[in-house]
Computed example of a mutant assay.
Amino acid sequence: MPETPVLYVLNGPNLNLLGEREPDIYGHDTLADIQARCERAAGDATVVFRQTNHEGVLIDWVQEARTEASALIINPAAYTHTSIALLDALKALSIPIVECHLSDPSRREAFRHHSYVALAATKTIAGHGARSYELAVQAALELAQERVVA
């Protein structure tokens, strides 16, 4: 693990539309607002913040995090419920993985109740709106620190 923690914060499809798409569910913060929240919450840690609408790109970034990151925070959006390929990539990581969601999928449509990502995640944070990301950064930093101490 690098001396200064490096947190990868990866975001899946349609999260580029935050602030515009279904604000009653996802809130009014934009993805840029959420990135700023993550960077503030991370303190001196380095935050690599990315978003893609493409599953393969997301998987490439997860694989990159294997060697470059101290911890991974991921909001895979709809891929949470559909992507076994993403699960397989996450299972290759030895760093902490924090699954993050703005809404609480367990309180939404039935098809959102199953998370493939949860099968590989160290921790899941959901349902706190944009604050979910700040909580995820705090958790990721704590988990990465525990890993260094152990």
Rank of each mutant, 00 (worst) to 15 (best):
A89H: 07
G127A: 12
R112L: 12
P76V: 06
C100Q: 03
I125Y: 09
H81C: 03
A136D: 03
Y133E: 06
V98S: 08
K123W: 01
E109S: 14
A78M: 10
I73L: 15
S103A: 15
I74D: 01
S132C: 06
Y116E: 00
A130I: 09
S106L: 15
P96C: 12
A69F: 06
E68N: 14
Y79W: 15
I95C: 05
R107D: 12
H114L: 09
S106P: 00
L87M: 11
L87S: 08
Y79N: 05
P96S: 12
Y116D: 01
S70Q: 12
L135Y: 10
S83H: 07
S70W: 08
N75K: 03
A121N: 08
F111N: 11
R131K: 15
D104G: 07
P96E: 02
L119A: 14
A130P: 07
P76G: 03
S106R: 14
A92P: 00
E99K: 02
A121G: 05
N75Q: 11
A69W: 08
R107K: 15
A69T: 07
A126G: 05
E109A: 15
H128P: 10
A71W: 06
G127T: 11
I74T: 03
R107Y: 00
A69K: 01
A71L: 12
R108I: 13
R66Y: 09
S70R: 07
S94Q: 14
L86R: 04
P105E: 05
R108E: 13
T80G: 02
A85K: 06
L90A: 04
S70N: 14
K123Q: 00
A85H: 11
P96D: 09
T80P: 00
H128G: 06
A71E: 05
T67S: 11
E109H: 14
A118W: 02
E134C: 13
P76D: 00
S103E: 12
G129K: 02
A77L: 08
D104M: 12
H113Y: 10
R108D: 13
A130F: 06
L90W: 01
R107L: 15
A71Y: 06
E68I: 03
V117E: 09
R107V: 00
L87K: 04
E109Y: 13
T82Y: 09
G129N: 08
A110S: 14
I125Q: 05
T80K: 06
A78V: 03
V117A: 12
D88Q: 13
D88W: 09
V98A: 03
T80D: 00
L135R: 13
E109W: 13
P105M: 03
A85C: 11
D88L: 10
T122I: 09
A77G: 11
I125L: 14
I125F: 07
L86P: 02
C100A: 15
I73T: 02
R131F: 12
H101P: 04
